[in-house]
Design a protein around this nucleic acid. Structure first.
Lengths: 181, 181
DNA sequence: GACAAATATATCAAATTGATATATTATTTA
DNA sequence: TAAATAATATATCAATTTGATATATTTGTC
């Protein structure tokens, strides 16, 4: 069997750190990974079934306070596949920014509308940047105790660097658009 | 009928600038738009049929040097839909970087492998940045003659700003990873 | 004249999203 | 304390989109 599809690899990666339920995997996607990768329930749950079917993970049922859980663990085979995939060069590095798309067609709608799209973008980025900065502060404190934090911190610093650049661009772009009116 | 799906809006945006064939639309996607939006033939050709069916575009057959072409033009109705969509706030601004994903799980594979992923990323970004810088130079010369170029330039400057930040991060990340060994 | 590259349209399986359904437990608010 | 809301948890499905591939002609190169 060839190296699995992306969603399988991401899940194996998360399971390599700790045992997780599907719900918890989704939470990791929406917090730690959200700035560079996403996944929906519609891909996570079927992928978990496939991983078990292919011997990459095992599941166990647990009931905690009457709440039913299915907890997944990575197997040795799963860890091998993860390592194989990590060795391969990254295939997909892409950005999909609707804000830039609307800006590209900005001539149709005019400078004022373009500025309001940039304002909305700026506001969202400022909020996210604050969140990233907070994460980085916490991670820097724990980076010596756990090596996985070191790599996590690298991705957060990527976010901080790029989001700061976004904000610079926002200001310059708005200046340019206002000057032209 | 509600505002169409993204691919329809992108195509309407491109057709608002000039008449195009499906093949030419794909070329625009792979050049002007490639740094912030992508689309495949599998979405372009069906979308063009739908746009014609819904009166957003019209097609005409042309034969140039025995080569058959289907050229699409935006209609008044299509232009209205485009304007409606441009007015709405951007829904999807997301980054999907497999390089960062592999880095996040870097602990499983070690610092050397992480560095080699960053090296590959850096090389690709350097090449793209050169291309973006060249585009910006050309655009700045034509920005006064055509207003659409102004908006195109804004997106190129976004690319330059962010790609420069990526390169800074690459250097710092590698320094950090080398120090730790 | 042969070969590769570019132009041009089209389709399809597979991957993925976004929304939704269902049910239980925990927490907040009236 | 009762009701409402949020969080936990699993699961499915239509719709969107990709990535690959098929086909055919023309243009440029060796």
């Amino acid at each position: 069997m060839a190296i699995e599809k992306k969603i399988d690899c991401v899940i194996l990666g998360l399971l390599s750190h700790e045992d997780l339920t599907g719900y918890e995997i989704k939470k990791r996607m929406d917090t730690s990974l959200k700035y560079f990768w996403g996944a929906s329930y519609g891909s996570i749950y079927p992928a978990l079934s496939d991983l078990v079917k292919n011997g990459m993970a095992v599941k166990r049922d647990e009931t905690e306070n009457n709440r039913h859980k299915i907890i997944y663990s990575i197997t040795q085979k799963g860890r091998c596949h993860l390592k194989d995939w990590l060795r391969l060069p990254a295939e997909k590095d892409e950005l999909r920014y609707e804000t830039l798309l609307k800006l590209f067609f900005g001539n149709e709608a005019g400078a004022l509308q373009a500025i309001s799209h940039i304002d909305a973008f700026e506001e969202k980025i400022e909020k996210d940047l604050q969140h990233l900065t907070d994460s980085a502060d916490i991670l820097r404190k724990n980076v010596s105790s756990d090596d996985t934090h070191k790599y996590y911190l690298l991705t957060v610093e990527f976010g901080i660097k790029t989001y700061s650049a976004y904000l610079e661009w926002c200001r310059e772009a708005k200046t340019m658009l206002k000057k032209e009116r």
